[in-house]
């Protein structure tokens, strides 16, 4: 534990580097494209349009949970998918990040955890770029934007800690077990469907099945995603007790992830 605090203090000294690497990451992502930085807005916009088209015109679900309107369902979906996308793409990128930057780890002295931190942070910034699009659609669809939306940073913080902890573990283990990457993409698909993103917890089939409810409630991402849905879609206060427990779980995840990372740290320079 004491080691983690020491490492975090050391990490804080590298904040300028982290900041610059995040900027670099964001700049490099769309370098060479015609629209450049605008893609950060266009990607979620296009995604939103696709969802609206598919659910509004093709599947056309009419559930009372969504005012019997497919457009509203698309909005609900988007509330969950945006933060999930942050989580999933950070995790997939983290699985590679130490290998891709092997050159740095071998040649330059800096704490390796900077790399997963940069991955999670730059994906978070991307998530932020999607938020205005989401807010725009909320207003377009005539949903109210309540003051509870101001609680969004709390949810973001919990997700950040959880994602970082998980990614520290993934990035360090992948150095030794390269096939984690492949397991991960399957695992993330499963995880996606085991999180109330495309369906709400209020569905009767979930409410009536105790084991299903238990399984969903044991998934930390359930409470994080629900946090977003409460802030933005329902416009109410999230289950602060559940989110509080999720925060504690995230801290434990973070501690375990960091410990694994720290333990494997010395092998990075040889193995990447």
């Amino acid at each position: 534990m004491a080691r983690i605090f020491r490492n975090l203090k050391e990490l804080y000294r590298y904040r300028v580097l982290i900041q610059n690497l995040v900027v670099r990451e964001l700049k490099a992502r769309y370098r060479g494209t015609v629209l450049g930085f605008l893609w950060s807005f266009f990607n979620p916009l296009l995604l939103m349009i696709v969802y609206t088209a598919v659910f509004g015109l093709i599947i056309n679900p009419r559930d009372p949970a969504f005012e019997s309107k497919p457009m509203i369902y698309a909005l609900y979906l988007f509330c969950g998918i945006l933060p999930w996308h942050w989580f999933a793409s950070s995790t997939l990128e983290s699985a590679n990040v130490l290998m891709i930057n092997g050159n740095l780890i071998k040649k330059i002295l800096f704490p390796a955890e900077v790399l997963p931190v940069v991955t999670v942070t730059s994906n978070m910034i991307h998530f932020f770029f999607g938020l205005p699009i989401l807010l725009l659609f909320i207003l377009l669809m005539g949903r109210p934007l309540t003051p509870y939306a101001l609680l969004l940073p709390v949810v973001v913080f919990v997700q950040y800690i959880f994602t970082l902890g998980f990614n520290l573990m993934i990035s360090s283990l992948t150095v030794h077990f390269r096939d984690i990457k492949d397991i991960l993409s399957n695992w993330l698909t499963f995880w996606f469907f085991a999180t109330p993103i495309i369906y709400p917890m209020t569905f009767g089939s979930i409410q009536n099945s105790a084991p299903l409810r238990l399984m969903l409630n044991l998934n930390p991402m359930t409470h994080i995603i629900q946090g977003y849905q409460y802030c933005l879609f329902y416009g109410g206060l999230f289950h602060w007790k559940r989110l509080g427990v999720t925060f504690l779980v995230s801290l434990v995840f973070f501690a375990i992830g960091y410990m694994i990372f720290d333990r494997l740290r010395d092998s990075f320079a040889e193995e990447v």
Binding site: L17, R24, N103
Partner: peptide, 19 residues
Amino acid sequence: AGFHPEITGRENVFINGIM
């Protein structure tokens, strides 16, 4: 080591220097 190919020399000087 650590130059990013997609960004300019100028930006790389800063990031490399910070590293």
